[in-house]
Design a binder for these strands. Structure first.
Lengths: 343, 343
DNA sequence: CTAATTTAGTTAAACGTTTAAGCAAATAAA
DNA sequence: TTTATTTGCTTAAACGTTTAACTAAATTAG
């Protein structure tokens, strides 16, 4: 019964009263100020523990004008890349004893812009983000930056925004993957991608084009297939159609969920991977080695990207100097498996 | 240049001044109070928009004693189940224009308890959680509940906590899956699981035992393999050892990442799935149909669980009556694929 | 021994909202 | 016409911290 009485929230005032000191003394004692004598400090800390005192974060944030909170803004959370990146971010945030707000844009510019509005006025001290694929206008981002909130971008970044950016070498890994397919004997490689503005996509496409160009191959425009960025059956149909029409002998898929769509499409078209068509995909899924056949992947350092993004953000927050336009490029790794085996 | 001058934060005071009204008028106008005349309201709203005014959330929270924020506390984010659940939660939170703090316990009781401490004093209005697998003591949870913050549990719940809970029918789905394996001709089925206290694990094990018992099979204790809850190579070794020693002809894996470990172990032991051993796993991974062989899964309604959890939490927050001990059980679905094909 | 400094506190203002209470003018009721 | 009510606004307190400025007592310096 007693435990059901919603006990009055214990705050500094209550603590001060029972300890017979001023509120300021309590506050300072808890923050280990030099102003307070050692035995008073102890008394305060003891009592605070005893009464289970937890400072009100919002009062504190309001007064200090610091929230000890950051925001992660990402398109979605349904794939391994972002999951791992979040883990990397969290590994740093947890140590700093910060809090993490998470926002999903679902790749919509409107939502992204709305969320940025919400973050003004000090809700967070900093932002880590990967932009929505249909974001073209960057005014909302610049506005928040101008208000003094540091933003670190990872993976999906914008060229025309001046900020700290963590990316992988998308151009190079697409280039390497394409060459790998060429070496495996492919003559007619298609790129399966999604439409969107972040430079990550164009970089991957350019790496692909460059590798082909160097071999004197000029891919028809029809070799690039644009899918929807939702995981759905429609993509399987689009890919099947492409397989029927263009008859590629190699495929590079630029985002994670396209691996499943591509495999299903090949299966339905009775095409054998890797005999009829070889497949490589940008993905971090742990099931890659147990797929049928095991999938050659371009593995991004998702965890490290998140971790470094968070570290740089905290460097900035702690006043340490961070070059405002720093760009860190972490290497992706081509993990060769059976899906691109030489016939 | 001009844009680089960090303009003073516009607050109600500033708005009031330029509009030549009191701060209270601004506040009420923006909250559409009946106290304010229509044309004044319009003036205020216009000016607020013009100056890009965003209310300080912490001042507001402090005064209103409501944060418009919830917390999601989950063990990890590295698998599809929790990713999808988060999406479900987010789908509701976004509509309510709430904010979401996310905390990862990494299945550690200590972290979980620490995080609960942080949530006292009004940081959040409510919590949605899935408990850490090594949490045994539930005092931290009860303390937060007693302080009046509603907590909705999903998936990994505790029997001895009185609260709203969303689960799947773990007992039944394990029971069904086991019977499915029996029907496929298995005589010696092993359960690969992780150690932990949440009832979800014991329910799955009991469903498995029950199915066997009904067929007059009394599994040796050695038929239950306990793995670590980290995705690592060690688990593959543990499973290989088990395969060598017990030689099961059927396997049920109780958590997502054990699918990969099991497939790899079978592969290394040169065991063919499904010929030598049939495998079914509790998992939501989209790659299940393209595995080698396609994996029979017990698919949990992760998105819906998250969505319902959030809806019930908001029902509670909006004062609508919610049975304090409501338990919602959503059905999982056995999706039969080649990994359990009859020989 | 007095003056300067240090120690250990206190008081009160401030952070940016919300809201109860109050009030004058306008309108409605008696 | 007088009184009651409504309208539209203002004043001021409150939410729970943090911190600048102050003070009295104790210590140190000269």
């Amino acid at each position: 019964m007693a435990s059901e009485i919603k006990s009055d929230k214990v705050n500094m005032k209550a603590l001060a009263k029972v300890l017979n000191v001023s509120i300021a003394t309590v506050s300072k004692a808890l923050r280990d100020s030099h102003d307070i004598g050692p035995e008073t400090k102890l008394r305060v800390i003891e009592e605070a523990r005893k009464l289970n005192y937890v400072p009100n974060p919002y009062a504190s944030s309001l007064r200090k004008k610091a929230s000890n909170t950051i925001a992660i803004i990402i398109p979605e959370i349904a794939d391994s890349f972002f999951s791992q990146a979040i883990n990397g971010i969290e590994s740093v945030v947890a140590i700093k004893k910060y809090h993490t707000l998470i926002y999903l844009t679902h790749d919509s510019y409107e939502r992204e812009a709305y969320m940025f509005g919400e973050l003004a006025s000090g809700r967070v001290d900093g932002v880590i983000m990967s932009v929505a694929s249909n974001t073209e206008d960057t005014k909302h981002i610049k506005t928040l930056q101008d208000s003094g909130i540091p933003i670190v971008f990872f993976d999906r970044v914008f060229d025309d925004i001046k900020s700290v950016k963590i990316t992988t070498d998308d151009f190079n890994s697409a280039y390497t993957a394409t060459n790998h397919l060429l070496d495996a004997g492919c003559k007619n490689i298609s790129l399966i991608t999604i439409k969107g503005y972040p430079s990550i996509l164009s970089a991957r496409e350019e790496g692909y084009q460059q590798a082909l160009a160097e071999k004197g191959i000029h891919p028809r425009e029809s070799s690039v297939v644009t899918c929807s960025n939702k995981y759905n059956n429609e993509n399987v149909e689009v890919i099947k159609e492409h397989l029927a029409k263009v008859k590629p002998d190699g495929i590079i898929a630029t985002v994670e969920h396209l691996a499943t769509s591509t495999y299903l499409a090949c299966d339905e078209m009775k095409l054998n991977i890797p005999k009829d068509v070889k497949v490589a995909c940008f993905t971090n899924q742990i099931t890659a080695p147990i797929l049928n056949p095991p999938l050659t992947t371009i593995l991004q350092p998702a965890y490290d990207m998140g971790k470094q993004a968070a570290q740089l953000l905290f460097d900035h927050l702690s006043g340490r100097y961070v070059e405002t336009n720093k760009e860190i490029v972490l290497p992706s790794k081509l993990v060769v498996r059976a899906s691109t085996a030489f016939n």
